[in-house]
């Protein structure tokens, strides 16, 4: 069985049938890219994986553990939900950094709150020690994203590319098993996409399992182990990046790819 297995995810909003039975699998350390035109349900799929939406049907198994089963999990309790969510990290298109916290505090807020909770439950946990470790790890993350000197600045003082790099570090600080990206460069000026993609590429070097929704076809081809093409709520085509990009079979994928080439040619 694969590291992550999703079986038959379906989701409707009112009478808008957004996911019509999505099944996919990801191996540990693999990078999966999801491409497809706007409105095809990519964001909804990521949101379902991150428990921001509840699929109407379907099962999700991660590392042998059934995280979600629509048959049983109609209403998941808040605490269970939080634990399930922490298996995944999600980097949003619009960064969603917390504006009132410095870069450092954005990264350490959640780990420190978790530490506090652990201290409350278990008196043997040492807060000062734990905090030091969290801060040291945050420093390392800042170094990785190349923003060590921005630690004390506020999000509004950073460029979009820098903000997105901080958002990636914030997600990594919780050590998710799978890191998801929802069009991480779509809100950025073209000259800023490179720095973000570079960080994501460096994560691939660390064998992180990642699921990336992107419109950057060159990047997807280059970084992915597997590519999924979604259209109107179904997986229309999937395979190795070479096959999907150089040898598309379905008409929809061909049309999608040539549409993107036209845009890039402009």
């Amino acid at each position: 069985m694969a590291y992550l297995e999703i079986k038959d995810f379906r989701k409707t909003f009112g009478n808008n049938n957004v996911l019509k039975g999505i099944s996919l699998s990801v191996e540990k350390g693999e990078v999966l890219s999801i491409i497809g035109s706007s409105g095809s349900g990519k964001t909804t799929l990521l949101r379902c994986m991150n428990f921001l939406e509840t699929p109407d049907t379907g099962v999700m198994i991660l590392d042998g553990e059934t995280l979600f089963d629509a048959e049983k999990d109609k209403k998941i309790k808040e605490n269970a939900l939080r634990e399930k969510r922490l298996n995944f990290g999600l980097v949003f298109q619009s960064f969603n950094l917390f504006p009132q916290y410095s870069v450092m505090d954005n990264i350490t807020l959640a780990p420190l709150l978790q530490l506090k909770e652990r201290c409350k439950k278990d008196k043997t946990v040492n807060f000062a020690e734990g905090k030091q470790k969290i801060l040291a790890e945050a420093e390392q993350l800042l170094e990785k994203i190349g923003l060590t000197e921005k630690a004390a600045e506020y999000p509004y003082q950073l460029s979009g590319g820098q903000q997105q790099r901080v958002a990636i570090a914030r997600a990594l600080a919780l050590k998710p098993k799978i890191l998801c990206f929802d069009e991480p460069t779509s809100a950025l000026d073209p000259e800023l996409t490179g720095e973000v993609l570079k960080v994501i590429r460096s994560l691939k070097g660390e064998d992180r399992t990642m699921i990336i929704v992107t419109h950057e076809m060159g990047f997807a081809k280059n970084v992915s182990d597997k590519v999924v093409f979604m259209a109107q709520g179904v997986i229309e085509e999937e395979g190795a990046p070479k096959d999907v990009f150089d040898n598309p079979k379905s008409e929809k994928l061909k049309a999608f790819l040539s549409g993107i080439k036209d845009k890039e040619g402009e």
Partner: peptide, 14 residues
């Protein structure tokens, strides 16, 4: 924005 709440949710905040 709703995004602030969701960012908190995916970070496992109560």
């Amino acid at each position: 924005s709703r995004g602030q709440t969701e960012a908190g949710m995916v970070l496992g905040l109560t």
